[in-house]
Design a protein around this nucleic acid. Structure first.
Length: 572
DNA sequence: GCCGTTTTCGGCCCGACTGTTTTCAGTCG
């Protein structure tokens, strides 16, 4: 039985939910939540290296008790208390708390009083007016529950960051039109550049909060107002996305931006840090007693607490506070540090642009080089190239390179890794290329050990340069194949290969956890667009978002290197 | 359930908004 860190995290997280439903101490619940969040982000598989309790209790927030439970999960896939709790509590409660407006207390009260089996039962009860009579409930809550169920049934998925960005820009520029609005910024997980966002948090500075609120609620995309106060309102847009707006005064902007950006765990830790210094941190500022010491800017807030500014992408409680205190925060990579792109497709296979059109587009973007990597023959659905067509393309590349001196096209290919670990084209032709991107497009369902072995065998070939979209996942659509990424990162280090961070907004493949592991291991990451069109080239900035969340600096990234150095690195 | 340069017990971040209440609990972020 293979237990991933994500499996362990999911079980601990489930325990937290069940304990909440039981009315357990909130701090006990939080202990499970914290442990789950921590383990979810660990790069090393806990199940792989047989963990002594001692090693586990070395992790912050994991004591003797949790260590024991984690070991039990690793050994047998679950733990006794969880199973007992699951047996005791009905499954429907777990569904009920997914309905907005229903937390553990209300869910429990409804279940106790209405003998519910399903969410549909609750809907029926609400429809018949059976909820309003219950103690603590009234007609408005009954209506709220009905609407919550409708929202629950619509089952809105988390929104891709790239999609949320459009909405964020639209709403921010809309609010900026108000003359007295000095600043508007989208905060939350959006500002932390998470792969997906659950809702959008927008912060505005204005001395007339009511005016901002009224304008916001009148936006044509607002479908429903959930709450509306003098400094804070929540709405649901027609797209299904929830947006929270908060209005503050300029002197609190930094503190509010910090609070609204999160993550929640980072906020909690920082507020604790403030307490230790006899200070109070809230969304209005840093205070000693009644006196505000900081709050206008985020930098000021951190400074008051004795820390350097921590970029939003790092605020996930994965060591950023320790790094900040030690003056060891990374100098995160920015888009302008990239000198080129190492993964794109032309109309020779499934791209939209010809070789020359793509070259000109890259030249317009100011790139020094562009790696041409069309598909290999095995990907028939994308019209993958055989040896003959590839050789023809190489000649075409020579011609474009001769004609356009401001951009260098690199000869590459996205070559399939076959299920036996061989590459899809013979070495004799791959040898003529500058580099290869080697990817998996078939046999996703091999067991972990075989999938990992397949990739390592492929990497044994000295013509293997970059491992393309390493997990194969599509966010929200398809999980990745089972692969031991630790072994892959190590394997790449030993063989002189590189890992791709595929920047397509639905891939973002490597995850931040393995970006960081690659960095620590000393494996360079190629941030590549996988463009199939002119617009596709712009995806690099999404890759930069992800790379920053993975603590990557310019020196950790392959395509920040000038062409000459790049060519040397390609030679293994 | 975790944790400790005041602590091995008694704390654990802090505030806005809503609805049901007559002063506060629940939810959310």
């Amino acid at each position: 039985m293979f237990i991933s860190n994500q499996d362990i995290a999911a079980l601990l997280s489930r325990m937290a939910v069940l304990l909440e439903l039981e009315g357990a101490n909130v701090f006990r619940v939080r202990a499970y939540q914290n442990a789950a969040a921590l383990i979810d982000k660990l790069p090393h598989n806990l199940a792989d290296s047989k963990q002594e309790d001692k090693a586990l209790t070395g992790l912050p927030g994991i004591g003797k008790d949790l260590a024991g439970k984690i070991n039990e999960i690793i050994q047998r896939g679950s733990f006794r208390q969880l199973e007992e709790l699951e047996a005791r509590l009905p499954k429907v409660l777990l569904e009920l708390i997914k309905i907005p407006g229903l937390g553990p207390k209300r869910a429990r009260a409804l279940w106790d009083n209405l003998s519910l089996q399903t969410v549909a039962d609750l809907k029926a009860a609400a429809g018949k007016g059976k909820i309003r009579g219950l103690s603590g409930f009234g007609p408005k809550l009954e209506e709220q529950i009905l609407q919550g169920i409708a929202f629950y049934e619509a089952n809105p998925l988390r929104t891709l960051w790239a999609d949320a960005e459009n909405t964020a820009h639209e709403l921010c520029s809309y609010l900026k039109q108000i003359k007295t609005v000095a600043q508007v910024e989208a905060a939350g997980s959006f500002r932390r550049k998470k792969e997906t966002v659950g809702d959008l948090d927008i912060l505005a500075v204005c001395p007339q909060p009511e005016l901002v609120m009224q304008t916001f609620l009148r936006h044509p995309h607002v479908e429903k107002v959930i709450s509306h106060g003098s400094t804070r309102s929540s709405v649901i847009l027609r797209s299904g996305l929830q947006v929270d707006l908060r209005v503050v005064l300029g002197k609190s902007f930094g503190a509010a931006l910090h609070y609204f950006t999160g993550s929640q765990a980072h906020n909690i830790a920082l507020r604790k840090l403030a307490q230790q210094q006899n200070l109070k941190l809230n969304e209005y500022g840093v205070f000693r007693g009644e006196r505000q010491l900081a709050g206008k800017t985020e930098a000021e807030v951190y400074q008051q607490l004795g820390l350097p500014y921590i970029p939003p992408e790092l605020r996930e409680m994965t060591g950023e506070l320790e790094a900040a205190a030690a003056g060891k925060l990374p100098d995160l990579i920015t888009l302008n540090k990239l000198r080129g792109d190492l993964h794109c497709h032309t109309s020779e296979t499934d791209g939209a642009l010809s070789l020359e059109e793509l070259a000109l587009a890259a030249q317009d973007l100011g790139y020094e080089y562009l790696g041409i990597t069309d598909h290999s023959q095995h990907v028939t659905i994308a019209a993958g190239m055989d040896e003959k067509r590839l050789r023809r393309q190489l000649k075409a590349i020579d011609q474009v390179n001769a004609k356009h001196k401001d951009i260098v096209l690199l000869k590459g290919i996205e070559v399939d890794i076959m299920d036996n670990g061989k590459l899809d084209l013979p070495d004799s032709v791959l040898k003529e290329l500058d580099f290869t991107v080697c990817s998996i497009h078939s046999k996703f369902n091999l067991p972990e050990a075989r999938q990992t072995e397949r990739i390592l065998r492929a990497m044994d070939n000295p013509l293997f340069t970059v491992f393309g979209h390493p997990s194969g996942r599509l966010i929200g659509t398809r999980p990745g194949y089972a692969v031991n990424m630790e072994k892959i990162v190590l394997g790449a280090k030993e063989r002189g290969c590189f890992l791709e961070l595929n920047a397509h907004p639905q891939r973002l493949d490597l995850t931040e956890v393995y970006c960081r592991l690659a960095k620590e291991t000393g494996v360079l990451v190629a941030i590549s667009s996988d463009a199939h069109s002119r617009q596709g080239l712009d995806a690099l900035r999404y890759g930069i978002n992800q790379a920053r969340r993975g603590w990557l600096e310019a020196r950790d990234v392959l395509n920040t290197r000038p062409l000459g150095e790049l060519r040397k690195l390609f030679k293994r």
